[in-house]
C-alpha cells in the first residue's frame, strides 16, 4: 500500500490545479498540518507526562477550522449539492474531534499532576496561557476543597496538602507522572545505538520504522526532537 498516499493513484495533473486553487484556500502542503497534529495527539496520549504545546500548529488548525466553517456558510446560501456539503461537514467534524481530544487529554494530565506541573518550571512552560490559568484555578479550588472537607479536621501536623506530616523531610504528597513506565515507540529515522540504563549495559540499535517497547525516560529526548513517535 502506498504509504505516502499522495497522488499515487491519480493520473490527473492534480499538481497544477492545486496551485491555482490554493489562492484564497490553504497552500497546497498545508494539508500536512492535520497529519502532524494527529501525531502530536498520539504522542500526547501515549506519553506519561505533559508535552510541549505547539502554539503555531494549534493556531493554524483553529484557523483552518474557522475558515472552513466560513466557506461552508457561504456554500449553504448558494444552491450547492448535499453530497459535497456533507463531505466538508465530516472533514470539519473530524478535525474538531481531534482538537477536542487533544485539549482534553492535556486537561486530564494537568488535573492529575497540577501541583507537580506548577512547581516544575520546564513543565509549566509547556502549557498554553489558557492551560496555565486553568491549572492555577484548579489548584486553588482543590486546595480549598481539601482544606474544608479533610485537612482542617486532621490533627495539627497533618494539615498540609503537600506533605503526609510536617515531620516529612520533603513534599511527599504530590502526584508525579511515572517517567519509568514503558511506551511503544516507532523510529522515524535510523536512531543508532540507544543507551537504556545508566550503566550503559543495555543498548538497542534502532533502525528506521522499528517498533520497540522501551522505558519512557531514555527516549524522552528522541521524542522531543521528533525522531521517534509513540503509538
Amino acid at each position: 500500500m502506498g504509504e505516502d498516499g499522495r497522488g499515487a493513484g491519480s493520473s490527473f495533473g492534480t499538481q497544477d490545479t492545486d496551485f491555482e486553487w490554493s489562492q484564497g484556500h490553504r497552500a497546497a502542503q498545508a494539508s500536512s498540518d492535520v497529519e502532524i497534529f494527529r501525531r502530536v495527539w498520539r504522542n500526547e496520549k501515549a506519553a506519561p507526562e505533559i508535552l510541549p504545546y505547539d502554539h503555531l500548529l494549534l493556531q493554524r488548525i483553529r484557523e483552518q477550522i474557522l475558515l472552513m466553517e466560513d466557506t461552508l456558510s457561504t456554500f449553504t446560501g448558494a444552491a450547492s449539492d448535499e453530497l459535497t456539503l456533507s463531505m466538508y461537514r465530516m472533514d470539519i467534524d473530524r478535525t474538531m474531534f481531534l482538537l477536542r481530544a487533544y485539549l482534553r487529554i492535556r486537561l486530564l494530565k494537568i488535573e492529575q499532576f497540577a501541583m507537580h506541573i506548577l512547581r516544575t518550571e520546564e513543565l509549566w512552560e509547556r502549557l498554553s496561557q489558557q492551560e496555565q490559568d486553568y491549572a492555577q484555578r484548579y489548584i486553588d479550588i482543590l486546595q480549598k476543597h481539601m482544606e474544608q472537607t479533610v485537612l482542617s479536621k486532621l490533627p495539627f501536623g497533618y494539615q498540609s496538602m503537600l506533605r503526609q506530616a510536617t515531620s516529612s523531610e520533603e513534599d511527599d504528597m504530590i502526584p508525579e507522572p511515572t517517567l519509568d513506565t514503558f511506551v511503544f515507540c516507532k523510529s522515524k529515522e535510523p536512531i543508532g545505538s540507544l543507551q537504556l540504563d545508566d550503566r550503559g549495559e543495555e543498548v538497542v540499535d534502532m533502525l528506521t520504522d522499528d517498533l520497540y517497547i522501551l522505558r519512557y525516560r531514555p527516549v524522552k529526548r528522541l521524542l522531543e526532537t521528533d525522531r521517534i513517535e509513540l503509538v
Binding site: M1, G5, G9, V34, E35, Q64, M68, M87
Partner: peptide, 22 residues
C-alpha cells in the same frame, strides 16, 4: 480512517478542498 484508499466513483463531483487535503 485517514489512511488512503482507491475508489471508483459513479458520480461527478468537483475537487474537495478539505482541511485534511485536496
Amino acid at each position: 480512517e485517514d489512511e488512503q484508499i482507491d475508489i471508483v466513483p459513479n458520480v461527478r463531483m468537483d475537487t474537495l478542498h478539505m482541511i485534511c487535503g485536496d
